[in-house]
Every structure is written in structure tokens, then in C-alpha cells.
Amino acid sequence: MKTSRKIALLGLLTALCFVLSYIEFLLPLPSFGVPGVKLGLANLCVMAALWLVGAKEAAAINLIRIILNWAIFGSFTGLLYSLAGGFLSFLAMLLLKKSGRFSPIGISAAAGALHNVGQLAVAMLLTDAAALWYYTPVLIICGLAAGAVNGLVFSAILLRLQRKENHHE
């Protein structure tokens, strides 16, 4: 991909990422009595960057997403949760994608689950770990389900985006 095209695409994805975060902020999901349950739509943009551009660029978008969210909606502890969740889920996506064995659906599902595991780990460090274990199963399942839905959406998007990219090259 040409550098100028890459820069434009990454800028677009970063902006879209932020819009998706804002939409989620406006439409909170039923929380199932546990904090931190959400769809994670913004991850669609991180995935798009990872599949279409590269790992470094996708990591950068992920980090910018987290910092922007913190600056606009969040608190400092919120930042710690996002960083832990964002880092773990990105690592999962990277490794699973590299293995070449999984489709975006499986990759995104695992990333969703690990995102919540990362957040739980921070919560366990900051508060009472024993109390948090109680929430672990439901948060893993919620992350898995949300990630699978995102993966399904992303598979559909990817088909079209790749067709478009090929058309341009």
C-alpha cells in the first residue's frame, strides 16, 4: 500500500474508532449486574488496521483509542483497565492471526474474552481478588459472545474492504 494511502486509511480508522467508542458510550448495554460489559465496537477499527495495514499500525490505533477515551470519558483507574484489556486482547489477536489457523470470528471472540480477563486482573490488583473471581465466568462469557459478534461483522467488512484494496492496487 502506498504511504499516503496508508496514512489516510489509518487516520480514517482512528476517527471511526473514536466514533464507535462514542456510540457505545451513548448506548450502554444491559450490564448483567457486572461492570465493564460492552460490545467493543471500536475494536473493529483495530482489526481493520491489523488485517489491512500491519501490526504496528494497529497497535498504534489501539493505543490512541485508549488514550482518547481516557481523555474524554475516563478516569485514571479507567485508563489502567483499558490498557490492560487493550494490551491482552491485542496480543491475543496478533498471535492467533499469526498462527493462521483461525478466522476473524474465533480471533475476535478470544480477544473479547481476554480483554475482560485483563480488566479483571487490574480489578483484582486494585481491590479484593476473591470478590472478583465471582464475576470472572460471566465476564469471560460476555467477552467471548461480544467478540464473536464483532468477528462476524468484521468478516463481512473485511471481504468488502479487501475487494476495494485489490481494486486500487
Binding site: 492467533l96 489457523r101 483461525f102 478466522s103 470470528i105 474465533g106 480471533i107 471472540a109 478470544a110 467471548l144 464473536a148
Partner: peptide, 9 residues
């Protein structure tokens, strides 16, 4: 791939 996805999930 889908089978691997399913196993992972």
C-alpha cells in the same frame, strides 16, 4: 478454520 474457531471458543 471455522472448526478451529469453534474449538477455541
Amino acid at each position: 478454520r471455522l472448526l478451529c474457531d469453534l474449538l477455541l471458543i
